[in-house]
């Protein structure tokens, strides 16, 4: 787990709890965990910075690489891309809070493998590759072709899962790319698909 010592926005939650325990006692600190206040204190905020910052799990180079991969998976069409809605930031935050170190390492190793592969094959860093070559490389990862093994394919599926989840649960993904009904007002068992024209973005369970 990566801990940034200086930025208050990415402080370690564990240290936060430990600190609180010291001040107000262990029981009170852990009871705070169930409250809303704590959730907000550690909540993930979408970053609008042009500058790619270090994440909670990934360093700034890895974040830049993930941003590009997010954009390649879900590019801009008439709606924004996954990178436009900061799915890379989301994925890093989600990794930190909801996955363990083994999973963190899977993503880091995969990003390293993709970077090395680009260097070896094209003698150009992945981010500087032409888009068609970036796609070819990612396709090779997904199909476990050439230098990529089934384990890389499976790690890529995990990465993709995070990006896709981040996109379609974002406001843009759920309401612009898909059709969203916060309060449907009732259930209709039959409506023509052509009338709605796209899938529902409002699902009961995510």
């Amino acid at each position: 787990m990566k801990e940034n010592e200086n930025q208050p926005s990415s402080f370690s939650k564990r240290r936060f709890v430990q600190g609180l325990s010291f001040i107000i006692g262990g029981t009170a600190a852990s009871s705070l965990l169930s409250g809303n206040a704590f959730a907000h204190a550690i909540s993930y905020q979408k970053s609008n910075d042009k500058l790619i910052r270090e994440g909670k799990v990934l360093n700034s180079a890895e974040m830049a690489q993930l941003k590009k991969i997010a954009e390649l998976i879900i590019p801009k069409t008439d709606t924004p891309s996954a990178a436009d809605v900061d799915c890379h930031g989301f994925a890093d935050n989600q990794l930190f809070h909801c996955y363990d170190k083994v999973q963190h390492q899977r993503i880091k190793k995969l990003l390293r493998k993709i970077a090395l592969s680009s260097d070896d094959r094209f003698q150009i860093p992945f981010l500087k590759l032409k888009e068609n070559l970036q796609y070819r490389l990612l396709n090779n990862v997904e199909q476990a072709k050439q230098e990529f093994l089934p384990e890389h394919r499976s790690d890529f599926k995990f990465l993709k899962y995070l990006i896709v989840f981040g996109y379609y649960t974002s406001e843009v993904g759920a309401t612009q790319e898909l059709s969203y009904q916060a309060v449907p007002g009732g259930y209709k068992g039959s409506v023509p698909y052509s009338e709605i024209g796209k899938g529902w973005g409002s699902l009961a369970y995510y």
């Binding site: 169930s34 809070h97 909801c98 969203y180 995510y206």
Partner: peptide, 25 residues
């Protein structure tokens, strides 16, 4: 009903629960 009327993007972890919290409680 503090979880009601929240769209997924309004939830810090988009409805998933933090590992540490699960581990502890």
């Amino acid at each position: 009903y503090i979880g009601e009327n929240k769209a997924p993007w309004e939830l810090p972890l988009r409805s998933k629960v933090d590992n540490l919290l699960i581990e502890q409680q």
